[in-house]
C-alpha cells in the first residue's frame, strides 16, 4: 500500500544572487510576509511553511491556490527533489513526478535514447527496455518519430512522451503539475483512462492545477495552498466552494458534470 506523509515540512529558497541585501531592505517590509531570514541571517523566500498532511492509497488529491502559493514547491518536496529545511517526508511506494515539461529528458537525444535512459534509471534490463520503448511509443503515438532528436518534436509530442514515460513504469504515487493538460483532446482522454486504471489499483495521484473542472473530475480530495500554508483540506466540493467565487464554482461544476456525461455516452 502506497503512503506519503509530509510532516511539518518547510521549504525556503535562499536568495543568493542579486543584491539580496538591498533587496532585503526594500522588500522585507512588503506585505507578502514570505521573506524571512534563516539562522545565518540569509534572506530566504519561504515557499512552504510548516505543512503537514498524509496521503493514502486510493486518494486523488488536487492542489489549488494562486500562482506562487507553493503548489509546485510542495510537489517537488513530495518527490524528494527539494529536501526540506525542516520536518520530514516519508515516501512509501514507487514515486514518479511529472513536474517539468522536459521530464529531465535530454532534448538532443532521440526519443528512443531518452526512453532507454529512463528505463535504466528504473533499473530495467535490456529486454524490458525494448518493451518499454514499444509501449511508450505506442501510447504516445510517436512510433515514426522515435529515431529523431526530441528537440525536433512539437511541444504536444514532448508532453505525450513525458506522460507515457512516467506512467509506463507504473508508479504507485504519481505527482503531476498541470502542464499535462497541454495534450490534445484525444490524448487527454487516453491519459485519463490510464490514470484511472492506475488510481483504481489503490494508488495515489497528486495533481496541481488551476483548472478547477479537471480537479472536480479527477480528484476526491482537494488541498488549498495559500502563501505557503494549507488554507483548507477536504472534499473537492467543500474546498472549491470556499476557494472559488460562487459563479465560477457553479460553472466549473457544470463543466465537470457535462464532460462526465459525455464520457458515459
Amino acid at each position: 500500500m502506497a503512503h506519503l506523509r509530509i510532516d511539518r515540512v518547510s521549504v525556503a529558497f535562499p536568495l543568493y544572487h542579486g543584491e539580496s541585501r538591498s533587496l532585503k531592505k526594500t522588500v522585507l517590509a512588503a506585505a507578502t510576509g514570505r521573506l524571512g531570514e534563516d539562522r545565518k541571517h540569509r534572506l530566504v523566500v519561504e515557499a512552504v511553511r510548516d505543512v503537514s498532511f498524509s496521503l493514502h492509497s486510493g486518494e486523488r488529491v488536487g492542489f489549488v491556490g494562486a500562482n506562487g502559493a507553493g503548489k509546485t514547491t510542495i510537489l517537488r518536496a513530495m518527490a524528494g527533489i527539494y529536501e526540506p529545511m525542516a520536518g520530514s517526508i516519508t515516501i512509501d511506494g514507487a514515486i514518479t513526478a511529472l513536474l517539468d515539461q522536459s521530464q529531465g529528458m535530454n532534448f538532443d537525444l532521440t526519443g528512443r535514447e531518452n526512453i532507454r535512459l529512463r528505463g535504466l534509471f528504473s533499473g530495467l534490463g535490456a529486454a524490458q527496455i525494448r518493451q518499454l520503448q514499444i509501449d511508450v511509443a505506442a501510447f504516445a503515438g510517436l512510433e515514426q518519430f522515435l529515431e529523431l532528436p526530441v528537440r525536433t518534436y512539437s511541444s504536444g509530442m514532448v508532453v505525450r512522451l513525458g506522460f507515457a514515460l512516467a506512467t509506463a513504469i507504473r508508479p504507485q504515487i504519481l505527482l503531476m503539475d498541470e502542464w499535462i493538460l497541454a495534450g490534445d483532446a484525444a490524448f487527454l482522454d487516453r491519459a485519463r483512462h490510464r490514470l484511472e486504471t492506475m488510481v483504481r489499483g489503490a494508488e495515489i495521484l497528486v495533481l496541481s492545477s488551476h483548472s478547477t473542472d479537471i480537479i472536480l473530475q479527477w480528484c476526491n480530495r482537494v488541498i488549498w495552498m495559500d502563501d505557503g500554508e494549507i488554507r483548507a483540506d477536504g472534499t473537492p466540493d467543500e474546498v472549491l466552494a470556499a476557494y472559488l467565487p460562487p459563479e465560477q464554482f457553479a460553472a466549473a461544476k457544470l463543466a465537470a458534470d457535462n464532460s462526465e456525461r459525455l464520457r458515459h455516452v
Partner: peptide
C-alpha cells in the same frame, strides 16, 4: 504497466 515500481520507504528529512 510494464513494471511495478516498488521500493523501500524513503525518508527525506532535513
Amino acid at each position: 504497466a510494464l513494471v511495478d515500481g516498488a521500493s523501500a520507504p524513503i525518508v527525506v528529512s532535513h
